[in-house]
Nucleic acid binder design. Structure first.
Lengths: 388, 388
DNA sequence: CCTGTTATGTTCTCACCAAGAACAAAACCT
DNA sequence: AGGTTTTGTTCTTGGTGAGAACATAACAGG
């Protein structure tokens, strides 16, 4: 919302709030319910919805009566309304999906790629194959930090400061981009295990640890858009040098690389992920060596979480990727090491440690969220309303 | 601002914005200037100011003409308008000050105390001595975490979970309270070295390290109001056990306790602070032993800052307390160790490390800010306007 | 000293907004 | 079948900021 507000902006503001209420709700809400939630009168709600319907942003369908009272309507996405596309761009695959208001995801297409920036041309082509005039914004999840929003750095693809302006050109639809770990956290905050929490954290554990601090349902980005490298803090006393250039990083003790290193394999960004999964399976089957590796991983994970909880005081911490397995296999180890790292006075109220509920769809879901954030920006909604 | 807004709330919103513009400005602004800043018309500004003047929130005084054009008025605090009182409650002294809109501080009284919660009765009495009906809100800075906003824990006074409800009773004026390190950071963000920065951090280095993450000019509080214990993360590999209950805390290597420990003195919360200052002086005078202690302190400080910058990506980091001396004496050591702890790709754009400019007045200034935040809350402003 | 320029204050009209009251409608309950 | 409950609809009303037109008070320059 623009700082300055005229009485006309007030209307836009309430319409955005209404759209957000529809988008954020777990299930479709009725018009009367929306009026109650927003604290506005039924008459005003009717007027707002009417305009939004004409602008093809909302659609009213009869709601089956529930109890007494005159039947109302359900607020659902307009069948000809704007759509967000979401792209989950991974190590060697990508997925393109279409996402309606409310967050319903329809997978459109997937593909593999050759790990070169040429893949962006493929993505553009895939988007073009499915795009209609309903496509409003593309949200893209990628790994690696995206400095200042356009300088992409994906170390395991060997992409060093690739300029997104050269990849996402003027022929693209409006595109917003962020990194996968942050978007996975955003997805948990908006639609998953962290919903409704004022202060929370999320960590995605893959080769190493990426994460984000979530405040009021929004992911923090930092001054240069590269916040969230919690894995590169020296929290567990490792003596090793990290690929990132620092020493003793938490990620050296947690994640696929750390698991693999326990088995003497040289950690890197090749088959490490498969081997790590195997190690987890071996540990589950009782293999002693594998169990020790998983124990160490879980312990280091817990230690780091405790340290971070001291500093940032999250209500809960959710995990995705290998973190889900570690919770399943070693919750006690994680929690006891977390508690040991907590300041004593915090131990009676430790952060909840949760497995993410959005799961593998985290980056895609998060990408959809930032795309819809862009669509539901006041200025854009205002333009859509005026155009109609 | 309430989520729900009627057209009347719009007026309040703009009046709050106007008051904030006056409060936040470095120097008094004119009415025409305020209109430009807020993006409203001169007519609207005149109406808003008129109501605020009647409500004794603002006062207009003729501005000496600067260049051409019809002379305008300066917006200054109303001579009979509300005042905030700010209290800086320290280890064994306290200071009470009165703060007008705009942030001008008038020290009223100071005192010593016996380190027992009885001091709160003294504070209440001091406030009563100076209070008039202009007193609106008291802001109080204390050390130690304040869990859930009311459970006070000051380890070096031996206060363990003292309930503020028993100390700040219903006979007190409206009082807001927060801890000194966080408020010092808030002061830097609002009126000091961090002004205008979207993401920044502040650390107050005393016996140990307290700090806060500052986002958009506001200090983060966490889920239980106990965020900011950055000093209790194991960032520098210390093998020692910390008084907090964890192990290896950063604070074991940085701050007065760490300096004192270098000299074989048992760190605690007694004369440590004086000895630490002496060590700094000896180091300045060239004493080798003291220099080594200061070197180690500065190195550990830098290492920790680098780690935190990886995670949170602040634009700048400001320091207060001993941190100011460490910057003065060992900026290079701090910066080189910070750089070594940074991920390599961050090193060409490291966080600025700044000495705080609010200085010793940080907690008091921050306490005044949270008090004025409470006064300038939309609901309160609305009530004041209606009462007039 | 007079006149034009410039920035601001002031007044008035206007489009717009949400609240609220009163009434209508459509379901359920007994 | 009639009362109850919830929501939709309509109309009036008080309030808000924008914008245009004009007034005012300083300065600058001849």
């Amino acid at each position: 919302m623009p700082e300055t507000m005229t009485s006309a902006d007030l209307r836009t503001r309430n319409q955005v709030r209404l759209l957000r209420a529809v988008h954020d709700a777990a299930a479709p809400i009725t018009r009367a319910e929306a009026a109650r939630v927003l604290g506005i009168g039924r008459n005003t709600a009717a007027a707002l919805v009417g305009e939004l319907e004409r602008a093809r942003l909302l659609h009213e369908v009869p709601a089956e009566a529930a109890g007494r009272g005159r039947p109302t309507t359900l607020l659902v996405p307009h069948p000809e309304g704007p759509l967000a596309f979401a792209v989950d761009f991974r190590e060697d695959t990508w997925t393109l999906a279409s996402v309606a208001l409310g967050g319903a995801i329809t997978e459109l297409e997937g593909g593999e790629h050759d790990r070169t920036p040429r893949v962006f041309a493929d993505l553009r082509a895939a988007i073009a194959r499915h795009a209609t005039d309903r496509l409003a914004v593309v949200g893209l999840a990628t790994s690696g930090p995206i400095r200042d929003g356009h300088r992409l750095h994906i170390s395991h693809l060997g992409w060093d400061e690739v300029d997104l302006a050269g990849l996402i050109g003027p022929d693209w639809p409006v595109t917003v981009i962020d990194n996968d770990a942050r978007l996975a956290g955003l997805a948990e905050a908006r639609r998953g295990a962290l919903r409704g929490m004022g202060t929370a954290m999320h960590f995605h554990i893959d080769f190493d640890i990426g994460g984000t601090l979530l405040l009021g349902g929004d992911a923090q980005r930092g001054a240069h858009n590269i916040a969230g490298e919690f894995g590169h803090m020296p929290l567990t006393g490792s003596p090793l040098e990290c690929m990132c250039g620092a020493r003793g990083c938490w990620s050296l003790d947690v994640g696929a690389n750390a698991l693999v290193r326990h088995f003497g394999a040289r950690p890197g960004y090749g088959e490490g992920r498969e081997l790590a999964r195997e190690i987890l399976r071996w540990a589950e089957d009782g293999d002693a060596e594998a169990s020790a590796a998983v124990d160490a991983n879980a312990a280091a994970l817990g230690t780091g979480l405790g340290a971070l909880a001291n500093a940032l005081d999250p209500q809960a911490i959710s995990l995705s990727g290998l973190g889900v397995d570690l919770i399943r296999l070693r919750r006690d180890t994680i929690e006891s090491h977390c508690a040991a790292g907590l300041m004593a006075f915090r131990r009676d109220e430790p952060p909840q440690i949760l497995a993410g509920t959005v799961g593998d769809a985290g980056p895609l879901t998060g990408a959809a969220e930032i795309a819809w954030d862009a669509i539901l920006a006041p200025d854009r909604v205002k333009a859509l309303l005026q155009g109609a």
